[in-house]
Amino acid sequence: MSEESEELTHTTEEGDVQMVDVGAKPDTARRAVARGEIRLQAATIAAIRDDEIGKGDVLATARVGAVQAVKHTWETIPMCHQIPITNVETVFDVREDRVVLDVAVETTGKTGCEMEALQGVTTGLNVVWDMVKAAEKNADGQYPGTAIEGVEVVSKEKRALE
């Protein structure tokens, strides 16, 4: 590890938590993509595909939740900067036993947007769970096969403004 990477940027020398000062950094175009998935029963997947979930359109609702989460990340993650979101893309891949969600976030500013992408993925998948929970519960009211997994940042880009 380099000496610079060993520094704790969110704490002072006294151990107090602080927001990182990015004021001197130049504005750059940034993009981050995060991905995650929710494992579901085959019958639930079929109901999503056929728009037969009683609460409504699962993916449309999850898309709105993901975008809202991206826009409000700074309010829920301590020390996260409020950044201008210039674009959010959500892509759902409905497979045989899971729904995969990719969220791409773009901004022009002084700090990255990977936390926003991660927040979009986790909230979008939580919305899917909320929309299908009646179909996923077993006789005891539990969710033995339902799981959100594999949440990760799959890419992060930064380029100078033209």
Rank of each mutant, 00 (worst) to 15 (best):
A62F: 10
V99A: 09
H10L: 02
R98Y: 00
E37C: 05
D97R: 05
E4W: 08
P26S: 08
I148D: 10
I148F: 12
Q68P: 01
V88E: 06
C113K: 05
Q82A: 15
V132C: 14
G141Y: 15
K55T: 06
R95Y: 01
V64S: 03
R39S: 06
S155F: 02
G145K: 11
E152K: 01
K137G: 05
V88R: 00
M115C: 01
E37R: 08
V154N: 02
T122W: 14
C113Y: 07
E7W: 00
R35A: 07
T9R: 05
I148W: 14
V33C: 11
G150I: 01
W74P: 04
A47C: 06
G120K: 03
V33N: 04
F92P: 02
V88L: 05
A29M: 09
D97A: 03
M1S: 12
G124R: 00
V91Q: 06
E13L: 12
N126F: 04
A34E: 10
G145C: 11
A104R: 09
K158F: 12
D27F: 03
G36Q: 04
L101H: 01
A139S: 15
I45T: 11
W129M: 14
T111A: 07
C80H: 05
V88H: 04
T86A: 12
Q68F: 04
P78H: 14
V151F: 13
T86M: 09
V67P: 12
K25Q: 07
E14K: 10
V154L: 06
I83K: 03
H72D: 15
E4F: 14
A134T: 10
A60R: 11
H10Y: 01
G120I: 01
T28A: 14
T73A: 07
V127A: 09
E3A: 03
I48T: 09
G124F: 07
R63V: 01
G56N: 11
G36D: 09
D50C: 02
R49T: 14
D51F: 06
